[in-house]
Nucleic acid binder design. Sequence first.
RNA 1: GAGCUCGUAGCUCAGUAGGUAGAGCAACGCCCUUUUAAGGCGUGGGUCCUGGGUUCGAAUCCCAGCGAGCUCACCA
Length: 565
Amino acid sequence: MFDSEFERSLFDLRRAKLAEIEKLGQPAYPNQFSASHTLPQVREQWDGAAAEQLEANRVTVIVAGRIMAIRAQGKAGFATLQQGGQRLQIYVRLDAVGDQGFALYKLLDLGDHIGVSGYLFRTRTGELTVHVETLTFLAKAMLALPEKFHGLADVELRYRQRYVDLFTNLDSREVFVKRAKVLKAMRRFFDERGYLEVETPMMQQIAGGAAARPFVTHHNALDQDLFLRIAPELYLKRLVVGGFDRVYEINRNFRNEGVSTQHNPEFTMLEFYQAYANYHDLMDLTEELIAFVAREVNGTTITNFPIPKGPRAGEIVEIDLGKWQRLTMREAIVKWWWTEAGNPPMIEEFSSSVSFSRIVQQLYNVCKREQQAVGADLDRRPPYSQDVERRSLTVPAAALSLTLRQLASHGDSVLGQSIATVFEIVAEEHLIQPTIIYEFPTAVSPLSKQKPDDPEWVERFEFYIGGFEVGNAFSELNDPVEQHKRFEQQLTAREHGDDEAHQMDEDYVRALAYGLPPTGGEGIGIDRLVMLLTGSKSIRDVILFPLMRSREQKSEIGNQESDAK
RNA sequence: GAGCUCGUAGCUCAGUAGGUAGAGCAACGCCCUUUUAAGGCGUGGGUCCUGGGUUCGAAUCCCAGCGAGCUCACCA
């Protein structure tokens, strides 16, 4: 518990002060305090009250809070209490609180919790202040608070000791208040539209519904391995089969992958399903939902957001969550086609691996030329921010080169994957303003329904904001025979080394065999949406306790107990 | 998994032509009855992330490790 001798001796000192406080007749750890107002209530009600008004009609309040600043001044003194994210100053003077009360005041430290009763007034400088008449000790801070002006700035400490971050950095607290509002707004949105909120298994025997590697755990009594879910999708659709036409679930998914400013191994996802709807209905619903949540949380659809990745990383852009554009994946590739690569591809060229190879080759040639122009030593890719002009071509070059080889050896079976790769390379960085990208290759969408007129493409869309994907939706594949076939294709991919390929789920296919009505379903990354709405540049800033590598624990408090006697 | 950057007092940070460490806040003592990053006088507090190496001498230079941030890869 203690990081140093400094902390250990401070702890001892505070214990001694606690003993002194008890001698004054105040319990060291009282178990209750009845306040008349919270600090936010006091501020709301009397922030506008003038000094004369408070003098004429004396207002007595009983409030509690944590001491965030304390300034003793001889036989009087001030302190600033904090509660509910707000602050209120108190004024303590010997002739008002008496010897015992003032003795207690002198034993108080930064971080202590106290209760006071007294009347409101304004100081010379006009600050609303409680003129204290009685002081009640509530709990002691046994450790030193961070520096009062800068707060806790070390990001590692802010994540590991979030409890300190939350009361020292009120901006941090505000993010999580907003996060709660996001969840509340979403529930309201779906509840009002007749969706049923449900909870499906987090521990699953087959981790399905997404392409990702799962965490494995074990049930002792059943002696059976289980997976933490990577998505609730397959269970939610079973519920639609069961007759719950509209369901949603907001809960954690777990994916055994790296961490980044947009990824945490456990993250919160909203998934919802609506019978008799298709992906076009969901596009409308998505635009409505995001704008609704933005207005509920921020009062506006405008948000200022620091772009977290890509060539414009760090740039703060104004995003209007009420204004959307829609493009097919193929249209997006054409729209953001590199001008250096010549004329953009024609739609027909996406339909065979031979013609698509030529498209990929054109992009790859640009990378080669640029690399040669910059210099042959460009094996290592310069950071985006230092070389925006060059479009930082080594990584795209590597991906494009791999794609070319795959197309050459596997032909049409990797066409879908290749198109998705090209989309990410040319288009993703441009998707700052809300954009729906629809029509995905069937090969990368094992759970989506094909377009009636073109079985190589599915009725699926993803939406992008701020340069990253926020949600994913599709018309659900409800043909059990086709679903079984898609699972088998995934198994083949798995055998070829794709350990993120979907597993076979026979029971899910059986559920479909009972008849899933035409259904649209969608998943939205809540953490990312919260980032957008709070202007946070890292997902860790919107997760209370992000995953951190474990650290050695130091001496325990129990040891200190015995030492202190 | 890779690259770049960082790690000095409880906190926020100084300190490189290599000479065994400083400031502010916090703490402790004293003064001060309208202050607010209160003020004044005084005091204590550091395995300079860890382990090696170079050197007469390392917070500083080199190597390895640990932790973190960022960028990238993977994904939502």
